[in-house]
Amino acid sequence: MNDHQVHIDEHRDDEGAKTGMWIFIFTELLLFGGLFIAYSVYRYLNPLAFHLAAEELDTTLGTINTVILLVSSMTIAMSISAIQYKNKKLTLILMGVTLLLALAFMVNKYFEWSGKISHGIYPGSMTLQEASRGELLFFGLYYAMTGLHALHIVIGMAFIGYVMYLVVKNEVQHDNFVILENSGLYWHLVDLIWIFLFPLFYLIT
C-alpha cells in the first residue's frame, strides 16, 4: 500500500505541467481581454477625450518601464538556460536580477501613480468629476488595467521568489526545472500584457 502512495506523490509529467501553465496563461489573457474590450469600445465612442487624456501620461516613464520588463524577461529566460548548464550560482543571480528589475518597475509605477494622484487625477476625485465623460473613462481604465497588471507583477515576483527558494534547496535542478520554466512563462505573460498596455495608454495619442 505504501509503495503505491509514494507512487502517486511521485507522479511527474513535465509536459503536462507546462500544458497546464499554457492554458492558465490563456485564461489570464482573456481576463485582461475583458478590459481590452471595454477600452476599445470606450475609445471608439470618445476618440477626442482619449487623445487628450493620453497626453497627460509620461511617455518617458512608460518607456523606461517597458525596457525594464523586456530585460527582466530576458534574465529569467537566461536563468532557465543556466540551470540546464548546472550553474546554480548563475541561475540564482539571474533570478535575483529579474526580481530587482521587477522591483524597479514597481518603484517607477509608484512615482507615476503618486504624480497623477497629486494632480488630483484618481478615481472619484474632484478634478475627474468635472472632466469629460471620456477622460473619466480613460483614467478609470488606466488605473484598473495598470493596477491589475501591477498585481500580476507582485504575484510573479512571489512566484519567482518561491522558485529561488527551491533552487537554493536544490529541489529545482538541471533535470527537474519545470517549475522554473513555468515561472518564466508566467513572467513573459506579465511582460506581454505590458507590451499591449504601453502603446494603448502612452503611445497612441
Binding site: 471595454a38 470606450y42 478615481p123 472619484g124 473613462l137 478609470g140 488605473y143
Partner: peptide, 17 residues
C-alpha cells in the same frame, strides 16, 4: 468600491456593455 467608471452612466460607462 472605488468609483472607477465602467458601466454606470453617471461615471461615463455604458450599462449595455
Amino acid at each position: 468600491t472605488m468609483q472607477i467608471g465602467f458601466f454606470d452612466p453617471a461615471l461615463g460607462g455604458d450599462p449595455i456593455l
